[in-house]
Amino acid sequence: MVLACIASLIGYGVLFGFVLDRPLDLAWLRVQIEAKLAHGAALPSPKLVILAGSNGPYSHRCAVIGPLLHMPCVNAGVAVGVGLDYLFARWTPLLRARDVVYLPMEEQQYARSADATEVGPDAAIMFRHDWRTLAKLPTTRWLGAFFAFDLPAAATSVVETAAASAGIADARATGAETNAWGDHVGHTRDKAEANAGVLAAMLPMHETADAVARGGGAAVIARFVREASAHGVRVIGGLPTGFADSPPPPATIAAIREIYEANGGTFAALSNLSRYPRADFYDSPDHLNEEAQIAHSRAIAALLAERLTGVAVSAR
């Protein structure tokens, strides 16, 4: 019986570590992450790195912010749910003194538990394709990555492999929706019309100050801010975009601010707290439409310039 259990664990590891893959759902994530890392590695310092979930590429545009700040810029965010420790582990080696990292993290990134992070999509990516990064992470992450696959995941792998063989591909993996800076493009106001009903009905949820302060994500961010700041990297926390009719509670904002300021970073927020009318969004409160993305990026560029130089800069 013991031998059967050991054989089961070995077989499971071999199956998900070497045989099964997710060529559609996880491939685009991997392709996006790797492409942005490659772009970031090619940039001279000092550079600006915008790191968040999908709020980063959808609501911020490096192609606008970079030139306004006269800094090379990479929009490094991909999606909420990708482990922050994984992203920080990949980006930290590319950061140099005087680089600037701007983190307009979604509220749930702070509150996300360590348990949930351990079995997130990046765990599957690391276990199948990136053991080098996995080795740098704590051993609890190794265990989580090993056990990140359930029976439906096996079925999904088989189906996705068959679909990929039949020529089906995710447009996001081809880079058609992302520009060279890593910004999401093409999510125009016209296209957003199709989502107007959904946007009107959405009820955004906010994290409490306590959930933010005690969250597993908050601890990971705090550690990154501390270590990056110690190496001369300027880390600036920010707020994600959201509906004007649903601002985050002041206590939540204070808790977010505290994570940066208590660990050697700074925090910067627009006077509108990055809140916009629902008509400015594409398909969720984290995703501005392209026109609003550009306008918001100008405002953020002005805010960052003020923080970096101490001089107020016009958003226009």
Binding site: V80, G81, G144, F147, F149, D150, R172
Partner: peptide, 17 residues
């Protein structure tokens, strides 16, 4: 996997297919 890790698995929102 199901006993120790499945309770923490949350659906990933960005899967397109």
């Amino acid at each position: 996997q199901a006993l120790f890790f499945a309770p923490h698995m949350t659906p990933f929102l960005y899967f397109r297919f």
